[in-house]
């Protein structure tokens, strides 16, 4: 019964709670250190998987995760881009854009080749109405694949209702419209910051000249 008496002591409470807190924090610390590497690896694998989805097979031979950069695109936050190279030559870039959907932001991952052509587009995260707006997911419909292989000029970036060339979904226009706007915005960003996003030298080098010519043509 000495324990019972001890429990009534005012000092027992801080000791107990302190001990429990110590125990808990120690175990958390152990778990965190034990899992840190594994978690990082798993997340890298995830990202690599998504990158692989928007890039055609054999398009790049470098480790995209290792070749990422922060590009200032005139917005509050720099844009994270992953550069795809084949034999060291920049081939394209992968980055995220965010569209303003019906029920919240739509996070989109898109890959663009050096000519400003979409290689692949995937929706990573969205909160659109299930059954209506979620057809932008690759798992629900293949509408998103119709966005591949288009440049800023080659396509009318709008849904058919608005005079564009892309299908809208019956009953939902806002969601595809948001995706299209976001992707078009992504292409425009790419056009403006092409060199930085591809990781090309700004000027002077031969490759740069060729591209500068192309840019001149497209602008």
């Amino acid at each position: 019964m000495s324990l019972e008496q001890l429990k009534e002591n005012t000092l027992y409470q801080p000791l107990l709670l302190g001990a429990v807190a110590l125990l808990a924090s120690a175990s958390l610390a152990w778990a965190a250190s034990a899992t840190r590497d594994a978690i990082a690896a798993a997340e890298a694998r995830d990202l690599r998987d998504s990158l692989a989805q928007v890039l055609p097979e054999g398009f790049a031979d470098n480790d995209l995760l290792a070749d990422s950069a922060q590009v200032e695109v005139g917005e509050a936050k720099p844009l994270t881009v992953y550069r795809a190279r084949l034999g060291g030559t920049p081939q394209g870039t992968v980055f995220k854009v965010v569209g303003k959907g019906y029920a919240g932001p739509i996070t989109i991952l898109m890959a663009v080749d050096r000519d400003g052509r979409t290689l692949g587009v995937r929706v990573l995260k969205h909160t659109e109405t299930p059954g209506l707006g979620d057809k932008i997911e690759i798992g629900k419909a293949d509408w998103i694949t119709t966005l591949s292989g288009k440049t800023l000029e080659s396509a009318r970036w709008a849904v058919k209702k608005d005079g564009g060339e892309f299908d809208q979904f019956a009953g939902a226009t806002i969601t595809p419209r948001a995706v299209l706007n976001a992707v078009r915005g992504g292409l425009e960003t790419f056009a403006r910051h092409r060199e930085a996003m591809l990781g090309l030298p700004q000027d002077g080098e031969p490759a740069g000249k060729a591209i500068a010519r192309k840019e001149g043509k497209s602008s």
Binding site: T10, P14, G18, L22, S25, A29
Partner: peptide
């Protein structure tokens, strides 16, 4: 982190006890 959590626990325990 461990220390701060432990001290926090002890302090809260003291407060509750009082």
């Amino acid at each position: 982190a461990i220390l701060s959590l432990t001290i926090l626990g002890a302090l809260l325990g003291l407060a509750l006890g009082i």
